[in-house]
Each structure stands twice: as structure tokens, then as C-alpha cells.
């Protein structure tokens, strides 16, 4: 996986227990077009507290152009922003 840290727009599901699950997101590609990526499976979820800045880390499986890909999404709790961190 390569480090990208691209801001993305996210559809996520927040359940009764306070768990957050990313569902699908879109980002602008090189041609300024929106690409939608659906998340197939969440492999791992962790909390990153580095420097006291809390971030939810999700390692997910997606399917891009018929190819199974692993990527890391991050949700920054203080700013409520989602990032495509690694792909």
C-alpha cells in the first residue's frame, strides 16, 4: 500500500453502540471526475492516538476494476474528516 492521504467524501453507518462503519466513498480522480468506491469488507479497525489526536483506522477490502484491493481509511475525530490514507 502507498501513502496517499486524500480527503474523501464518505457514506458511513453509525450504529446504536457508537460503532462507525464506512460503506462507500467517492474521490476526485486526475480528470476531476468523481469515482465511487464501495467497501466490501473491513479487515481491521483500530484507534490511533498519536500525538493525542484521535483517528479511527480501518483496513478494508474493495473491488476496483474487478481487482480486489486493500486500502486504509482514516476518520479524524476532532475534525470529522475522512481520508483515504493508504492504497
Amino acid at each position: 500500500m502507498k501513502l496517499l492521504r486524500k480527503p474523501i467524501e464518505m457514506v458511513a453507518w453509525f450504529d446504536y453502540e457508537g460503532n462507525t462503519t464506512p460503506v462507500k466513498f467517492r474521490l476526485l480522480n486526475e480528470a476531476e471526475e468523481n469515482t465511487v468506491v464501495k467497501i466490501k469488507r473491513i479487515v481491521k479497525r483500530e484507534v490511533d492516538k498519536f500525538a493525542g489526536n484521535r483517528m479511527m483506522k480501518y483496513t478494508c477490502e474493495t473491488c476496483i476494476n474487478g481487482e480486489l484491493k486493500l486500502l486504509e481509511l482514516r476518520y479524524e475525530l476532532d475534525t470529522c474528516r475522512w481520508y483515504l490514507y493508504k492504497m
Binding site: 492521504r5 490511533d48 498519536f50 500525538a51 493525542g52 489526536n53 483517528m55 481520508y83 490514507y85
Partner: peptide, 13 residues
């Protein structure tokens, strides 16, 4: 070191 860690978390190399 706080600044360093923060930058790393933000994806700085």
C-alpha cells in the same frame, strides 16, 4: 517530538 508525531500521523514523510 509532539510536532513530529503529529506530522507523521498526518501522512508527512
Amino acid at each position: 517530538s509532539w510536532q513530529a508525531v503529529y506530522e507523521l500521523q498526518q501522512g508527512n514523510k
